[in-house]
Design a protein around this nucleic acid. Structure first.
Lengths: 300, 300
DNA sequence: ACCTAGCTATCGGTTTTTCCGATAGCGGCA
DNA sequence: TGCCGCTATCGGAAAAACCGATAGCTAGGT
């Protein structure tokens, strides 16, 4: 009747290892202790977190949902401990950050909240806009830095980037889709498939160009600005999607499965990073922001 | 070597009660158990969280800092549990939220992060700007809602507000300041005092008007947009400040004490709330956002 | 069809943590 | 000075956590 941090840590290790015994080994603890902890956690939440298979455990959709909460909690715990450890040299000043919408909802709202907690004397202003406009503001000196997709920067001469994450394009399919039979799919096979397009951060144009270049002319079934809507549409069989692995999840919000497949051939990748104006001296606050963003590994 | 949620809960209860035995009673647990848990927590963090006095405990500046982390962690824990409890009816759609800068850094970044976690299918866009401009956008229908100081709304006819927090003005003084001798201070006594002004959310104009109205003509020593800068300046004796109790804290970031005193006479209060256009039907997403904001009590 | 390897679940017993009640100590206050 | 309200500490009891051993399961190889 109240789970513990210990249970969360064991749960996390188990989810990462996809096996209890592996987690036990990583934790330097006996397997039975881990099994027990997970059983308690499930009983406490009233939700099965894993499906048991003879070769290991497979996380359930609800389990995966809880996993993200667990990660968030544990990272808050580690922040709290860190805050007590260091004899704070207090950063101050202003920090003007731009974010594109893809990145804004995804992971950066957590990073910003954490940064503000850790650096209360820094006045943070966050602005959400298109990558194009953010570049403009960066060059004009109105933003200190921006978090955005860097693989299609317009002005590479004036801007400098620190990559946070590199992510290849991959194909999303509904469960049981014929293309899922092969481990890897050729772009030309997509010719007749209805596509779901995500209208965020200019992921749409590169995708179209990609398809065009390979002569595939798929039908656009839907266009939406919501990642979750894409997931739901793919999961229910309304179409397939070609998107960065970064935002892939195994289930839609409703719990319907989504399958991902690599696309054969060398495709461009998406890079997400922190961008600032070349030559501009990085303020300590920006540097610290980059550190915070890096420490927050992107999560599925 | 790794604190537990139990310890955080006991710590929180103790900080609220300012006494171990009171906390023990509230927790329906023995006093020695609480004492023990706090001792362990302090040993684990390597930081004294309370000063022991014969009539109870007084939290230290570091303890107070840790308290905010503890609150954040426990509220994440409760969110996680909640997420597993409800058989999610998934809200979707867009939510365009405006915030003023005072409110942005203070508590709303946490609320937004929590809202996004709890409602992943809602595309949230947050915009930070002046109250005046936010009103304009609200009336134009470009924002669904805004979190801002509502006590000086310009257009009360077209806008409607749900108050989140009401907060009276109070006086901030350095430790040992002569005015701190009295429990309550008259505005006229401020005539000769150097003032620190906060240039956020139009807190400055009302303050000036207030002082003018009472014939007090204090000297403006500093103007800054950083709440923490005001705290540091007041704590080090650079001046005094007249600000909403909402943002009062007992110490500056450096750990120097700040004293607060009520101002005698009936002063205007500051109201912080969620504002939307009158007559506009509140979308479920907005309603849920208000609920999230309300549940997050403002923290000192 | 039958092993075997690799995994999880469960159980008894041990160690560690948590809790309680009792008691001692400490400083305000009548 | 003695009482009152609080915290710290201690011994012992109760509960939780852990371990090692064992049983059970199934995919994959033979």
């Amino acid at each position: 009747m109240a789970f513990t941090l210990r249970q969360l840590r064991y749960f996390l290790a188990t989810a990462e290892n996809r096996t209890v015994s592996g987690a036990a080994q990583a934790l330097a603890i006996s397997q039975s202790a881990v099994t027990e902890a997970i059983r308690e956690l499930e009983a406490d939440l009233g939700v099965p977190l894993f499906e048991r298979h003879p070769r290991g455990l497979e996380i359930t959709p609800r389990g995966h949902q809880f996993l993200r909460h667990a990660q968030q909690i544990l990272s808050s715990v580690s922040d709290a401990r860190q805050a007590m450890k260091v004899e704070a040299e207090h950063l101050s000043g202003r920090l003007n950050i731009g974010v594109t919408s893809l990145v804004a909802g995804y992971v950066i709202s957590d990073v910003l909240a954490r940064f503000r907690r850790a650096n209360p004397a820094v006045e943070v202003a966050a602005l959400e806009d298109s990558g194009e406009y953010l570049e403009h503001l960066l060059i004009g000196g109105e933003l200190d830095a921006a978090v955005m997709v860097t693989s299609n920067l317009r002005d590479r001469l004036a801007l400098q980037a620190e990559i946070l994450e590199v992510s290849p394009y991959q194909l999303w399919l509904p469960n049981g889709h014929p293309l899922a039979a092969q481990p890897s799919v050729a772009i030309s096979d997509l010719a007749q498939e209805p596509m779901i397009m995500l209208r965020l951060d200019e992921t749409e144009q590169p995708t179209r160009r990609l398809l065009d270049a390979f002569g595939a002319r798929p039908r656009i079934a839907f266009r939406t600005r919501s990642v979750e809507a894409v997931r739901s549409l793919v999961a229910t069989g309304a179409g397939i999607a070609l998107l960065p692995a970064l935002i892939y999840r195994r289930w839609s919000l409703e719990g319907d499965p989504i399958v991902s497949r690599d696309v054969s051939g060398s495709l461009p990748v998406v890079q997400v990073g922190v961008v600032w104006r070349k030559g501009a001296p990085l303020s300590p606050a920006v540097r610290e922001f980059i550190r915070t963003a890096q420490s927050q590994r992107f999560r599925r």
